[in-house]
């Protein structure tokens, strides 16, 4: 399943003329794909195992045993994806796994979530100023869009572009979703579909300022290129189209003369229909954060009911509960 062609080096890309470069960029982004896997064939085994183990309160031991169960029971064709997400050689930008479990239990969901995230080599990063693990309607959520714990829609974005550390992967596991509100995602190929060669090539050098939003308790910002290439990861995009109630546009061109490129992309994001994940208990979605942007439509719930959920929000009765991890790929890296 690996792409067999040798990947060009950065030096080689720098030597391409505009036409060659645009052709190369279009080819690269057109190949990125989402894989959907169905774990129905081990769901009963997982449920049976959980019914025996659910009283064990040592999470680390449970996780180790559960990973062992997955390792011993999964088909090799499914396990292939664990070590190939987000890499240039594979062109796999996201994996959505459905039917892993059916019991609505936050401990089981978290266990499945943490185990699969580890198998996909995601190192979860926790910042002191952000509550990032559980996503559900939180107090004042009814007043916010572009916030994971709010009611309103979340515009497509990649996570944490204002941080110094690159977040390679983002994973989400659905414990419960009676609102049937899916995670949506959009590929960069759809965001730059109508770009001419000149504008497309300009993106390689476009710098933007990224700001934190409602999700964190402090204001952070970072300037960076919106597109990068490396032999290992291929093309990676750093894009965030969210508009925060307080800080405004979360991504702004450093050179105002280049803001039109961001505006063109924003128009495309608004106009393209986004693909959607499966909003069911037992779905795990993991995306290469810089290969595909994720978001969410407005929550499918009557606005008049929201106050009841946000006032006394808790795991047991919240209508939509997801677990989230985000962080770099776990590998040897002496630069860290």
């Amino acid at each position: 399943m690996d792409t067999t062609d040798a990947q060009p080096t950065l030096n080689k890309i720098n030597q391409m003329n505009q036409m060659e470069l645009a052709k190369f960029l279009r080819k690269e982004i057109s190949e990125e794909k989402l894989i959907i896997l169905d774990f129905q064939y081990i769901q009963d085994e997982i449920e049976c195992w959980w019914s025996k183990e659910k009283n064990n309160d040592n999470f680390q031991v449970l996780k180790f045993k559960f990973m062992n169960l997955l390792i011993n029971s999964l088909h090799e064709s499914d396990s292939y994806y664990f070590s190939n997400l987000g890499l240039n050689r594979s062109k796999i930008a996201a994996v959505c796994i459905k039917n892993i479990f059916r019991t609505d239990c936050h401990r089981l969901s978290l266990l499945v979530h943490e185990s699969l995230s580890s198998l996909f080599q995601l190192t979860d990063i926790k910042y002191d100023y952000e509550e990032h693990k559980a996503l559900f309607l939180k107090p004042s959520g009814e007043f916010y869009k572009d916030w994971g714990n709010g009611y309103g829609a979340i515009t497509p974005h990649s996570d944490d572009l204002y941080e110094n550390l690159n977040i390679d992967y983002l994973s989400l596991t659905i414990c419960r979703d009676i609102t049937k509100t899916p995670t949506s995602y959009i590929f960069p190929r759809d965001i730059v579909k109508n770009f001419n060669d000149i504008d497309l090539c300009k993106l390689l050098h476009l710098k933007a300022k990224f700001l934190s939003g409602k999700n964190v308790a402090i204001l952070k910002e970072r300037e960076r290129n919106i597109m990068e290439y490396s032999e290992k990861y291929g093309l990676r995009f750093f894009l965030d189209f969210r508009i925060d109630n307080h800080t405004g546009e979360r991504m702004q061109a450093v050179d105002p003369g280049e803001q039109y490129l961001i505006d063109m992309m924003r128009d495309n994001v608004s106009n393209f229909s986004q693909e959607q994940s499966i909003p069911e208990t037992g779905t795990f979605l993991i995306v290469a954060n810089h290969k595909v942007l994720h978001g969410r439509p407005q929550m499918n719930i009557d606005k008049s009911e929201i106050g009841n959920y946000t006032k006394h929000s808790c795991f047991i009765d919240t209508p939509r509960l997801l677990f989230r991890s985000k962080g770099p790929r776990n590998e040897i890296n002496f630069y860290e």
């Binding site: 062992n68 997955l70 390792i71 396990s79 292939y80 664990f82």
Partner: peptide, 8 residues
């Protein structure tokens, strides 16, 4: 691969 690893 990661999955083929024997956690026993």
């Amino acid at each position: 691969t990661e999955l083929q690893m024997n956690l026993q």
